[in-house]
Design a protein around this nucleic acid. Structure first.
Length: 299
DNA sequence: AATGGTCAAGTCAGC
DNA sequence: GCTGACTTGACCATT
């Protein structure tokens, strides 16, 4: 069981997600920014290793405008060695990596242009993981998409689009239940038709489900991960008190976290903490699990 | 140097 | 019809 956090390390001064405005695009600026982002990514990964954190989500902004038509830099080739060196560091330390394209990426859109842009963006994400030389347990997690007033038809569009994707994307892609539209049950239905693995999000399930008990539904979710996909990834957050339902907590609620791990035991999973204070909560969770004798129940 | 409006991309709920 | 929320900051024009 690895514990991780997404994209940003607040203890370090650098960010691996620096970007800039489209209006100020130049090839030179893209190269300088990517150089800086890769340097910082290594710094974050070193911090993680030194602190016993072995799960990390790489920011989608690592390569700004990578899938935008304005980008004509062959960054894949220019930074090949850098990606390869980063990948060696990740593999040598047996780290788990994920990426999470943001809300604009919609495989089930009705507008073919939106689908085209989405597929390009997914190809970019898969390419980053390929350039790092990571095996198939490094995943790109995506929400199912919009409902467009007809969920059934929108699920069918997702399934149809998924079938047209290149194998280089399919082997990396997993779907996640979201907080307003597609539930775990919807994801399981899509899995039956596509074999796509499901990444379970605890807070989204809390605010958007058909009442399934986590400990009862989790075995079905875990079974969507084949052995080459690695053990299941899950996203965990608790609800921030006195805020909108679904708002991610600022700091980890340790009793809630331990209750969640109880729900998913005895499955071994890697847990991404989607908590605003990032690595601080990861360190607390890791320390709490260190001497937890429940973990011997993991199979 | 500080400020605050605005930023590639989409959907949807709530006003 | 517009705004804010989403995993959320941070760029950058203007003063």
């Amino acid at each position: 069981m690895k514990i991780g956090y997404p994209c940003i390390n607040q203890s370090l001064l650098c960010r691996s997600s620096r970007t800039f405005r489209l209006a100020s695009y130049s090839d030179e600026r893209l190269i300088l920014t990517l150089e800086e982002n890769l340097r910082c990514l290594l710094e974050i990964l070193r911090y993680n290793r030194n602190h016993g954190i072995f799960f990390f989500r790489i920011s989608s902004d690592l390569v700004p405008f990578a899938s935008h038509p304005i980008c004509s830099v062959d960054w894949q080739d220019a930074f090949k060695e850098r990606f390869s060196a980063l990948g060696s560091f990740i593999r040598d330390n047996q780290m788990r990596i994920s990426m999470h394209p943001d809300q604009f990426i919609l495989l089930n859109a009705k507008d073919p242009d939106i689908i085209d842009r989405s597929v390009s963006e997914l190809a970019y994400h898969a390419e980053v993981l390929d350039l790092l030389g990571l095996d198939l347990n490094a995943k790109v997690q995506l929400h199912v998409g919009g409902v467009y007033g007809d969920k059934k038809a929108s699920i069918e569009r997702f399934i149809d689009q998924y079938a047209t994707l290149d194998e280089s994307i399919i082997r990396r892609l997993v779907i996640e239940n979201d907080d307003r539209r597609y539930t775990v049950k919807d994801c399981l239905f899509i899995h039956e038709r596509t074999a796509i693995p499901i990444i379970f999000d605890s807070l989204h399930h809390q605010v958007n489900s058909e009442g399934e008990i986590v400990s009862e539904v989790f075995p079905d979710i875990a079974a969507t991960w084949e052995s080459h996909d690695g053990i299941p990834m899950v996203d965990y957050s608790s609800q921030e008190p006195e805020s909108r339902a679904g708002k991610h907590a600022v700091a980890i609620d340790l009793p809630d976290f331990l209750a969640f791990t109880e729900d998913i035991l005895p499955f071994d999973v890697d847990i991404m903490l989607e908590i605003k204070n990032k690595e601080k909560s990861a360190l607390i969770a890791i320390a709490a699990l260190e001497n937890d004798d429940r973990l011997v129940r993991i199979r």
